[in-house]
Computed example of a mutant assay.
Amino acid sequence: MARATGKSEAVYERLKGDIESLRLRPGAKLSEVQLGEELGASRTPVREAIRRLAREGLVDFVPGEIARVAPISLGGVRALYEFRMLLEPRAAASVATVGSTDERVLVPFRELLARLEEFDETFRTLDTTAQTGSYQRFYEVSEGFDQAVVAACRNPYLARTIADLRSQTVRLRHLSHTGPRRMLTSLEEHRAMLKAIIQGDAEAAEAAGRHHLAQTLQALIDSLVGQDFAVGADVRVDLAQ
């Protein structure tokens, strides 16, 4: 049993990584047999991994119980980011408040700001090709910020809800940073959020968080309009608005 559980975990991590990185494109069918052959696993761990990803919203089932990578649609992205804008700025504000009286809370945010400044200094010296290749370093800082907010948030329900949304948002990250200009803008947005939290300015932290999410949503909409995997009836409705 332990061996099957370990295999299922390995298959899950591989499939999740492929979905989040868009190596498995939205709408792609997931054949248990084919995946098992590719990953060197039996159908049981593959099935368990697919069901787990379905619970996270990364996989859905079409009639006939055929699994596929969950599509990305403009309407779905807007709904997700509207929900995030209700939660994450509030969490950032609460962390800033806590940090103003407990310096220990601010340690990871100071470290992240230092990493961000180092990345910024290096990024601006690179040519366009090298800049694109360095995005992963920024993603690590961005992911670190999100995790630090969740860890420092004293409201367990708020923290858990934000954490549960991570699987949905990570794969959109590659679509929201469409070039060096957006990368630099996002960098400035993260700098503003980090500084507000470090300074204990709850109002500024909330405003900076909301601004960042709004700008990211617009970048995603612009990107999805030009992609061929934005599917669903809501696309036409959204494009008309």
Rank of each mutant, 00 (worst) to 15 (best):
S167A: 15
S167R: 11
S167H: 14
Q168H: 10
Q168N: 09
T169D: 04
V170Q: 07
V170L: 07
L172T: 02
L172D: 02
R173W: 04
H174C: 02
H174W: 02
S176L: 05
S176V: 04
S176W: 05
S176Q: 10
S176K: 08
H177T: 01
T178C: 00
T178E: 02
T178N: 00
G179T: 02
P180V: 07
P180D: 04
R181M: 02
R182A: 07
T185W: 05
T185E: 12
L187T: 14
L187V: 11
L187K: 05
E188L: 05
H190T: 06
H190F: 09
H190D: 07
M193F: 12
M193D: 06
M193C: 14
K195C: 13
A196G: 14
A196I: 15
A196T: 13
A196K: 14
I197P: 15
I197K: 10
I198C: 11
I198S: 12
Q199M: 12
Q199E: 15
Q199K: 13
D201I: 10
D201L: 12
A202Q: 06
A202Y: 14
E203V: 12
E203Q: 12
E203T: 12
A205H: 14
A205K: 02
A207W: 02
A207S: 08
A208V: 12
A208T: 12
A208S: 13
A208P: 13
G209A: 09
R210S: 06
R210D: 04
R210I: 00
H212V: 02
H212D: 04
A214E: 15
T216Q: 14
T216G: 14
T216A: 12
L217C: 08
L217N: 05
Q218N: 11
A219T: 08
A219G: 06
L220M: 06
L220Q: 07
L220F: 08
I221S: 03
I221K: 00
D222K: 03
D222A: 07
S223P: 00
S223A: 15
S223V: 01
V225R: 14
V225E: 10
V225N: 03
G226Q: 09
G226L: 12
Q227L: 10
Q227G: 04
Q227P: 00
D228M: 03
D228L: 08
A230C: 15
A230W: 08
A230M: 00
V231A: 04
G232L: 03
G232H: 03
A233P: 03
A233Q: 01
D234P: 00
V235P: 00
V235L: 01
R236A: 11
